[in-house]
Amino acid sequence: MIVTGKGGVGKTTVSVALGMRAAAEGRRTIVCEVAAQENASRLFEHTTVGFHEIELEENLWAISIDPDESMREYVLLQLKVRAMRDMLFRSRIFNYLAAATPGLKELVTIGKIWELAQLDRKVKSGRKYDTVIVDAPATGHGVGFLQTPRTFANIARVGPIHSQAKTLDNFITNHEETGVAIVALPEEMPVNESAALEHDLVEEVGVAVDRVYLNGLYPERFSKEEAERLGALAAGENGGAAKAAARAALSEFERARSQRAQLARLRRRAQAPVKTLPFLFEPELGPEAARRLSRRVS
């Protein structure tokens, strides 16, 4: 399951929540963070996630996929003769190409995701996972990221890179095996972008978009009639806590209402089913927040 969406919509939180949910249902699950941001670390108390599969709780693991480490691992798996790979790692040309070749970091990252998803793991004594959840890069980068294998398959017309890139592309576009979840916010432009992103992912990349999560939805705490009464109260008061509280309630009423309109727009425009996730009135989102959301995702 690949989780994507524009920046700041809560992809990491949703990824972790999905991971917790799958783990709670008894599936051996790993949450992968890409591009070394260690965002997920914030959501797991004091645990720093690195390029190792670490166990967070029962059935739940996490890894931060570092492209350089992935590249190293890939070469190690390809070259069994130690002298050859030592020579390669020391080679200036190899190091230059590894650093400078466009898209190579993305390719080896996807390669590692593929490797994690194999029941017959390439890595020695690798655990078998039932579910792999990827906290993917933001929109814009997201589509490009998922297209990398095809780009490489096209550039390298024949040879090992071509066939391996092709394998990765098939893996990503296999609708049985791989699905994408888009995370959106209930605002005008994020809704537009999510609809466009879904279109690009389906039409250009050819992946299956299984679900759109509308994150951060305010509760509908007040009815229209109540809002009118609160409006009258706010207008009548001359400062003080009651006025401030009434105004806060009116703000919440307005925001909840405009968000419902955006939810309706998203439902009209999205092809995949839309699922809502509540706004959490918590100063900072930690593991508890992810756990609460995990009960709402499926």
Binding site: Q78, F94, I161
Partner: peptide
């Protein structure tokens, strides 16, 4: 020659 083996000559 090692690199060619991994990534292919054409590339």
């Amino acid at each position: 020659s090692v690199m060619k083996r991994i990534v292919g000559f054409d590339l």
